Computed example of a mutant assay.
Amino acid sequence: MIGDLVGSRKSTDRRGLQQRLNTALARSAADHPVADPLVITAGDEFQGSFPTVGEALHASFLLWLDLAPDGDVRFGVGWGTAQVLDAETGTQDGPAWWQARAAINTAEARAEHPGTRHARFCYRSGPEGEGPSEPAVDAALLCRDQLVGSLAARSLRILGGLMAGRSKTEIARDEGISTSAVSQRAQRDGLDVIVAASAMIREIV
């Protein structure tokens, strides 16, 4: 998985955004199984590898929610093998990374078009089509991006709480609104659907 902060150079608090990214990466490493830890590689880009496509997509979505709405990130997930080129530095190469790079480039290109401006996640199967179905996974990600990209800041916070397994009562208390208001917003904005779809995406192997 390759991630990249979007437009961070234009941020009025780039240092603060970088610190938030570091904290989010550390939290992700503690909460999710990884084959290789998430590390910042250069500038605003970071990468890591996961045991399954689903775990990579789940961890990346929680990272996105962790930084939203002030920070925006795009992600590319690729399926394949990787070879360690330098054990000391951890430098790797191979189809997994080529495909992840192709995926994040596609996500960036999609975001430049009005109809798919909310695109932030993309998946690419192996060079010969190995791994989970690319069209099926990518279609699910594109639809989820559209739903999430249309949410207001409060709905994003509520979604983050739901994804973390918090109850609507707990979320309502933090938001200073009623549990009924949280439930109504979750229904109106499709938050429960996003949570359910994300759980299914996590199961992709």
Rank of each mutant, 00 (worst) to 15 (best):
R117N: 07
M163W: 00
A181N: 05
R74L: 03
A139S: 13
M200V: 15
A186F: 10
T41L: 07
G165R: 10
R120I: 10
A164H: 08
R188S: 06
S11D: 15
Q83V: 15
L62K: 14
L142K: 09
P135T: 06
D4A: 01
E55L: 11
V193E: 13
A109I: 03
W79H: 15
D138S: 14
G149D: 07
H113K: 12
F61Y: 13
A42I: 15
D72N: 10
F61H: 14
A172V: 07
V53S: 09
P69I: 04
K168T: 15
E130V: 03
P37A: 10
Q19K: 12
A107D: 04
G161E: 00
A199H: 14
V53C: 07
E203F: 04
K168V: 12
N22Q: 14
A111S: 15
S49T: 15
K168W: 00
M163C: 11
V182T: 10
T81Q: 12
A100C: 09
A136Q: 12
Q83P: 00
L57M: 03
Y123A: 08
T52K: 11
D4P: 09
E45K: 08
G131E: 06
D192S: 12
E170D: 15
L142D: 07
D31Y: 00
A136E: 15
L25P: 08
V39M: 06
T81D: 13
E45Q: 14
S49V: 04
R9N: 10
V53W: 02
S28D: 09
G160W: 01
T12V: 13
R185H: 00
S28K: 01
S183P: 05
S198T: 15
T52Y: 08
I201E: 01
S49L: 05
S155I: 01
Q184N: 11
T106V: 13
G161W: 00
A186G: 05
A197L: 13
